[in-house]
Structure formats: structure tokens, C-alpha cells
């Protein structure tokens, strides 16, 4: 069965996305610019048990207050420098990469919310790529 995020998971991801990528100076907020319509396509090859865990964690985030999500994210960040191979730091490290990967894949991409009218993050960082095919 195809990996499909629940509506709660998308709500949770949007909250996480706004912590990673808030509205700040020229940068738009994740929730304003992210083309969440692309999300399911970006996880289509993730093994289904890994996807189910991610979907569940994000759905739980939808119900948590922001200060608790902030606390979890800071624990994830700290786990990156934690030398322990224990199950908790190992899981937090994977969550850290998984959440960042998903948020940045949408935020620094061409897949924007069609209603968004401002400068996209790729425009803010002045990124352009010439693809010359002939």
C-alpha cells in the first residue's frame, strides 16, 4: 500500500516545519511556502514500517503544544553530538535527520504552495541552476 500521510501528520509536520524554518527576515514560514501536496510522493520509497512510525510521530505532534515540540527537537539536536549508541539517542538521531530531511526537501524545493506569492527559500538564498540539455 502506498505511503500516505494522515491529515494530522501533515498538521504536525507543518508545526515542526515552522520551528525549523520560521518566517524570518526574507525567509517565508514553512507553513506559508511548503507545497504539502508533494509530501506523499517524497516518501513513496520509504520502507512502510519506517513510514508508519514517522506518520504516527507527526500525528502526535499535531496535538502537542509548541513548547513540547521545541523541547523534543532540542533533544534531537543534542543527540547528534551524543557519543552513546543507546536506543534513545540512536532513535532521536534518526528522528532528527528524518524530520529535517522532510522539512528541507519541501522548503528548499520547487514544490511550493501554489497560493504563495512571495520570495521562495531558493530565491532568498539566490540559488539557480543551469540545465543545458542540447
Amino acid at each position: 500500500m502506498a505511503n500516505t500521510f494522515s491529515n494530522f501528520a501533515i498538521k504536525g509536520l507543518t508545526k515542526v516545519g515552522n520551528i525549523y524554518c520560521p518566517k524570518n527576515d526574507e525567509f517565508p514560514a514553512f507553513s506559508d511556502v511548503a507545497g504539502t501536496y508533494k509530501l506523499n510522493d517524497l516518501v513513496r520509497n520509504v520502507p512502510s514500517d519506517d513510514f508508519s512510525s514517522l506518520n504516527l510521530v507527526l500525528a502526535i505532534f499535531a496535538f502537542l503544544p509548541n513548547f513540547i515540540i521545541n523541547w523534543i527537537i532540542s533533544k534531537c539536536q543534542q543527540s547528534q553530538a551524543n557519543p552513546s549508541d543507546g536506543i534513545i539517542p540512536s532513535t532521536l538521531r534518526q528522528l532528527n535527520i528524518g524530520l529535517r530531511g522532510l522539512c528541507y526537501s519541501i522548503y528548499y524545493s520547487e514544490f511550493n504552495n501554489p497560493d504563495f506569492k512571495g520570495k521562495t527559500p531558493l530565491q532568498v538564498i539566490d540559488y539557480s541552476l543551469n540545465r543545458i540539455t542540447d
Binding site: 517524497l42 513513496r44 520509497n45 520502507p47 519506517d50 530531511g101 526537501s105 519541501i106 528548499y108
Partner: peptide, 15 residues
């Protein structure tokens, strides 16, 4: 796009 490259081409959908 970079996003689709990771998601579509790599085992595990990325890393």
C-alpha cells in the same frame, strides 16, 4: 529536482 532525486532514486527513499 534535488528533492525528487533523493526520494525516487535512493534505496530507503533517501538516506
Amino acid at each position: 529536482t534535488e528533492a525528487e532525486t533523493s526520494a525516487h532514486l535512493y534505496w530507503g527513499g533517501g538516506i
